[in-house]
């Protein structure tokens, strides 16, 4: 009985490690990304019908999203709203947001 319990615990431990390590190594917590994305949704519609002002972010690749946010953060890309929003995002938050939006269907 004890042996079975020990094996069960070991199995669960291994599973937990497998599941959590990749997520943490990317620094991208999906739940956190989803919460942070709510701020973006005030302006970025899920699909874009017209206009050239604010693009949809859904399905955009991670490197594109990360680099755009970093450019706004260091003010090399211009837009007062985006510089303000990105200005207070740390790298964990930028990674979480990029992972979240890239996971959404276009």
């Amino acid at each position: 009985m004890c042996e079975i319990l020990r094996l069960a615990f070991a199995a669960v431990f291994v599973l937990v490690v497998i599941i959590t390590i990749p997520t943490k190594s990317m620094g991208a917590d999906k739940e956190y990304g989803q919460y942070l994305s709510a701020e973006c949704n005030a302006c970025h519609a899920p699909s874009k019908k017209s206009g050239a002002g604010i693009p949809s972010l859904n399905g955009k690749p991670v490197p594109y999203l990360v680099s755009a946010l970093l450019q706004y953060k260091n003010k090399s890309r211009k837009n007062a709203v985006m510089q303000m929003i990105a200005g207070r995002l740390d790298s964990e938050q930028i990674n979480a947001l990029a992972a979240y939006f890239s996971s959404l269907g276009k």
């Binding site: 302006c43 519609a45 874009k48 206009g51 002002g53 604010i54 303000m84």
Partner: peptide, 28 residues
């Protein structure tokens, strides 16, 4: 942090700001 538009901005900047507001309306 905060920001505000500035006097003397170019017509192009002001137009972009208006177009941004249209997309904001759709997003909101």
């Amino acid at each position: 942090s905060k920001f505000i538009s500035k006097k003397g901005e170019s017509a192009e900047t002001r137009k972009t700001t208006y177009e941004e507001s249209i997309d904001w309306y759709n997003g909101m």
